[in-house]
Amino acid sequence: MSNTIHDMGGMHGFGKVEPERDEPPFHAAWEGRVHALQRAMGAAELWTIDGGRASLETLPPVTYLSSSYYQRWFLGLEKRVVAFGLVGADELAAGRSLRPGKTLPRQVTQADAAKPPIRGNFERPTNTYARFKIGERVRTVNINPATHTRLPRYARDKEGVVEAIRGCHVYPDTAALDVHNENPQWLYTVVFTGQELWGPGSDPTIKVSIEAFEPYLLPA
């Protein structure tokens, strides 16, 4: 969902940032397991990275805020394996498998796991031209879809400048809903002044950019 608690830019009241000295990659063994389970199940490509994000964003707000990061990953993964029919709710309750598994399209073997992890490439070939040019003034759309989007609330209906064109990329708004609907769109870095985003009281020395897909933009 779009207007959910995950979209935090500009909110007040969460307090100070608390850096931790010499922070370990995982604070408990289970965090590492969740991290690995998520990556191993993600490799099956039954859902997209955007679909995975959407499953976290749709956690109830109180759950979202009161869970640690890897707890959220776990809750999202649990939701997804049930939604995709890979695991039954009865099996989660029983804590063990009650029937044979399905065949996954892809699985992570130990040999795969030993390779250096490398991010997928989300850029896609296109025969379209980018609608906007570097330096062009644009206005972001005012949208409030009930489904996944990567246009943060604080940057909707705001005027900014195209600073870079990043190529044509998988469109999260559709790919989150359907693994087969990549619907590639041009991606831009669009920069806004602090005052445009936060009003005249903003720190005048700040500028904020978002990575904006073309459907998020209109000519200013």
Binding site: M41, L86, S97, G101, V108
Partner: peptide, 9 residues
């Protein structure tokens, strides 16, 4: 569960 079902190693 995921191991018993053969989804993960």
């Amino acid at each position: 569960i995921l191991t018993e079902k053969g989804y993960v190693d």
